[in-house]
Design a binder for these strands. Structure first.
Lengths: 205, 205
DNA sequence: TGTCATCTTGACTCGTCGTTCAACGGCGTG
DNA sequence: CACGCCGTTGAACGACGAGTCAAGATGACA
């Protein structure tokens, strides 16, 4: 049984850490910053997390899951496959730009960078990415069941689509996040939907 | 007119820095490490680059351009569009895994992370990415000219394809770099070529 | 050979944190 | 009331590493 107040403190600190990482970046986030933001002393932060690295990597892992939770909820309020795909695209390209939302762009880059070298972060990221792809897969499967998408032997392969589309969204996200003049949010959304439409045989315009 | 020996020293240091960033990551690379690797004193590194940040960001920018140079050269030795696309895919997914090659995976993540906050890095990255997309675009255009790909009003839009495909390659690269069990090099290559085949109306199997 | 600019050294300074620790207050329990 | 467990503080410690600097090596050139 875990302590109530203690858990709350931990959660506060994780949230603060995630915000700070999003703002200044992983490497530029200090224990003292996190402490300051939650109105506590540096010592207390260490008391809860032992080391800076544990705090930051846990914050990183923790914050990303919020994105998938949001996605999961979003799907329950949409009924057609087209609407669902559109809301996933909007979530991907618009929610992350908002600084207030947990999964801000800055976090993704640091998450990837850390995952590349840090096994625990890598494992968590992989888990989350799998959730995300499974979610896409479910949308496709329900589309097939409803007859909106062609299934069967030479129809759409849901798993293959999920993997491809997820990768495509990531790639477009990078461009949008880095403010590439040739790929703004509108174009990214259009391209993502064009891809889905073509692969799934839908009309999404 | 720049000094000969001085330029060589600089180049050595940039290369060493890039290697080190690829190995340990941007944040974990010290001036002393770079100095050690080129057999010089820490002071000398500062003498050439003033600050650690200038050294590392310049190394990052410098090393990425090697990738595009390699791509450029590669294209001259292939004649059909299919061959060219295949070699771009191979370059993307295989060269970066090799630690000896300048553009190792680790560098990309750090490049993106830095570009997100560092205007100079962002500008350079954008320039390189544009070069990359232009290169893809050229392949498509020459394919259209040769009649391998349908051009014209309702044919392939080379610019659009370049932007899309580049993003797709990036997204797949992330998965491969992070060792995702569902996206290994072979699958990434297959998916990338499938995308190109479908968008360009080619047969690439 | 003398002079001067450039390159090079490595010991040193100095800030900046991460982490430790002794002490304190509050609170539940015996 | 006394004891002890948490949560909490914040000053202090210590490590690490960027950047400085005074001094020396090197080499070009007159």
């Amino acid at each position: 049984m875990e302590n109530q107040a203690g858990d709350e403190r931990r959660a506060q600190m994780l949230a603060a850490a995630a915000e700070l990482i999003a703002e200044r970046g992983f490497a530029q986030t200090r224990i003292a910053d996190v402490a300051g933001r939650v109105g506590a002393s540096p010592g207390l932060v260490v008391y809860y997390f032992e080391t800076k690295d544990k705090l930051l990597t846990e914050a990183l892992r923790h914050s990303e899951s919020a994105f998938y939770v949001a996605a999961e909820e979003l799907l329950h309020s949409r009924s057609t496959t087209a609407q669902r795909l559109e809301s996933l695209v909007t979530l991907t390209f618009e929610s992350k730009s908002q600084a207030d939302f947990a999964g801000s762009w800055g976090l993704w880059f640091d998450l990837w960078t850390q995952a590349f070298r840090h096994a625990q972060v890598a494992a968590d990221r992989q888990l989350l990415d799998d959730q995300w792809r499974t979610l896409i897969e479910r949308v496709v499967r329900s589309g097939i069941e409803d007859g909106e998408i062609a299934g069967g032997v030479d129809g759409v392969d849901a798993e293959e689509f999920a993997v491809s589309w997820a990768a495509y969204l990531d790639g477009l996200s990078v461009q949008v996040a880095l403010d590439d003049p040739r790929v703004d949010v509108a174009r990214a959304k259009r391209l993502a939907l064009h891809f889905a439409a073509r692969e799934l045989g839908l009309n999404l315009d």
